[in-house]
């Protein structure tokens, strides 16, 4: 009897191993896609592989990575946050106007304010049961209007850039500090997801919200936290952008919305929720940045650049998504 159980257990383990290998392949796809794309661009323009050039690429990817990192948590919950870019713009305005008064404390203050803004959206979403798409769509217009009002519809220059200098320097004259900030953000969020119940809960809600609810998970709280995290990283992304433009502007980050969502999806996080990871967003942001910057750098004509971008982004997603997790593609 015991033997039979052991054999059955062994067989089960072997059976589990086979999908695991496929899982590794699927997991490695985003990285592979990134490397292939980099190689292809390097063939067109070998200078791209110079250390300085690569680090600059990484630097360019940093704000996008930070912006997409928090939004990834919302996507893992099965929702979507369309407000991140507008919130980052608002953050830039707030930061630039608060620096004179708060100096170094302005950045944490702005991040906190954005976290609150995100949490408010989360609260509206869970309390009134409005789809996150609609809430954050409304949030998008609202925050950008607030940014316009707060800035008087103008660029807000930063009289003194020292409080944000840390976010835009080169450590040792080489490594961009923003890259480290982005990596730290991703690692911190990944650790939060790994070592606290939050990660388990977020995934459970994304995979099967009814089951999560009946297991007694604090659904509302988890979602509000997810939106707050998304808001906080949007605020941090706004700070990174301020650091590199030395000013805040009400539309500064608006154009980063679709790239941020693309980074999440290209990385292989399922837009339907549950399946995905933060490191995927890191890789996704790399791919999107390569496409955004690399194509024009490699000398592709602007008109064809757009066409190529369209083709490649669909191709990248086609390569990276894990179809075994999607029964129905929407």
């Amino acid at each position: 009897m015991a033997d039979a159980a052991r054999v059955a257990g062994l067989r089960g383990r072997l059976a589990a191993r086979v999908p695991e290998r496929r899982h590794v392949v699927v997991t490695a796809m985003p990285v592979t896609a990134f490397l292939v794309l980099l190689a292809a661009l390097a063939v067109a323009s070998p200078a791209l592989l110079e250390t300085g050039s690569l680090l600059t690429l990484a630097d360019s990817a940093a704000p996008l990575t930070v912006l997409a990192a928090g939004a990834t948590v919302v996507v893992l919950c099965g929702g979507i946050d369309l407000s991140v870019a507008a919130l980052a713009s608002l953050a830039s305005v707030l930061l630039a106007s608060w620096v004179p008064a708060l100096s170094g404390a302005a950045v944490p203050a702005v991040v906190a304010a954005c976290a609150v803004a995100g949490a408010v959206q989360g609260l509206v979403h869970v309390a009134f049961r409005i789809p996150s798409f609609v809430v954050t769509l409304g949030g998008m217009t609202l925050w950008s209007a607030v940014a316009l009002l707060a800035s008087g519809a103008a660029t807000v220059p930063m009289p003194d850039s020292t409080p944000t200098d840390w976010a835009f320097t080169r450590l040792g004259g080489l490594v961009p500090s923003a890259v480290l900030v982005a990596l730290a953000t991703v690692v911190a969020l990944a650790a939060l997801m790994r070592f606290t119940p939050l990660g388990r809960w977020v995934r459970a809600i994304g995979h099967a919200e009814p089951a999560a609810r009946l297991a007694g998970l604090p659904i509302a709280r988890v979602k509000v936290i997810a939106f707050a995290l998304s808001g906080a990283t949007a605020g941090l992304a706004g700070a990174l952008l301020v650091a590199r433009t030395f000013s805040g502007a009400p539309t500064l980050a608006d154009s980063l919305l679709l790239p941020a969502v693309a980074a999440i999806v290209v990385g292989g996080t399922a837009i339907t929720g549950g399946h995905g990871a933060l490191w995927r967003t890191l890789v996704g942001a790399g791919i999107v940045t390569l496409l955004r910057v690399g194509l024009s750098y490699a000398g592709v004509d602007a008109a064809y650049e757009s066409i190529l971008y369209g083709v490649l982004i669909v191709g990248a997603v086609a390569l990276t998504i894990d179809r075994s997790k999607l029964s129905i593609v929407k």
Binding site: R200, R203, G216
Partner: peptide, 20 residues
């Protein structure tokens, strides 16, 4: 299948789902 378990997650995760 819909309300009892999160099928994509592990036995351990399902068992300890509500606990911190």
């Amino acid at each position: 299948k819909v309300e009892g378990v999160v099928s994509a997650m592990s036995v351990a995760d399902n068992m300890t789902l509500p606990y911190t």
